[in-house]
Amino acid sequence: MLRSLLARLGSLSVVMAGVSLITYGFVFLTPGDPAHTILREQRQSSPSAAEVAAFRAEHGLDDPFLVQYGSWLTDAVQGDLGTSYLQSEPVTSLVLAQLPNTLELALAATAVSVLLAVPMGVVSAVHRGTWIDRTSQIAALVGVSMPNFWLGYLLILVCSLWLGLTPVSGAGTLGQLVLPALTLGTGMAAIVTRLVRASMLEVLDADYVDTARSKGVRERLVVYKHALRNALVPVVTIVGLQFGTVINGAVVVEAVFQRPGLGTLLVDAVFARDYPIVQGVVLLTTFAFVVTNQLVDLAYVALDPRIERRGERP
């Protein structure tokens, strides 16, 4: 147990070290001299050599790369993600200010996806081949294939503009959360539905399900007690993964609904080449994802008694 924990921490720190290195290295992907490019784009005119030099000195860009990276990482580990180029505010506080909005969206969207997907997937699998199954499969296919920003606009068009049910944009109230959560949650739900269905189909074919039936167990219990519990293991993975990468969707959905949050912060920072913010958000979201992954692995042990013995998953 201790050993597997150690191994896990070890691989985790290797991954995070690589992630931070790449995250910090983004700056140097900038065409030409980063300082020059950043200043030019900020002011819409070519900066003087002195201005570039001052910028480089201020942000420590003259040091060798590894030194810069080292000091940034040391600070980051202590919770200091540097200072924004534009707003001269600490990145940490900017990020923390936006975190609740995105977290709220992520939780709501995950809830929507699970509540929609699990029943739909189970019913679909139990009634395999019937019109119920086909309808839900088509719905899931459409859901997976729809660009979520487009779905957002359709929802705005119908719910806000035509029916006037919900506000178009902003954040803070429950009403302002409904459409973004639906937009983000539907796409996630579609994937989960397909997975629940596939997983249930496989489990329903398993011998132990026949064993349960042969005992005389009610069909409803066969499905929900014997099959679903086993089918949940991959489902938990995917839900965890989706929660961990919800930032992907949030970037777009927050733009659609003009909603403040980490996504908006990131997109604005990317356009403004405010690299400390970009690095901060990427590092934080990646870290969040890696941690969620580990939590999912822990959840496995509770769901599937066999995992414990298998130890670390490959």
């Binding site: 011998d207 064993t211 005389g216 014997h226 519990r229 008694p305 066999r306």
Partner: peptide, 25 residues
């Protein structure tokens, strides 16, 4: 009726014991 019969009269044992028991209970 089938449930009653399976629960009280006709029991079945399948071939491969590695797959016939529910792994999570």
């Amino acid at each position: 009726t089938l449930r009653r019969l399976r629960g009280q009269e006709l029991a079945m044992v399948f071939q491969d014991p590695s797959t016939t028991l529910n792994p999570v209970y």
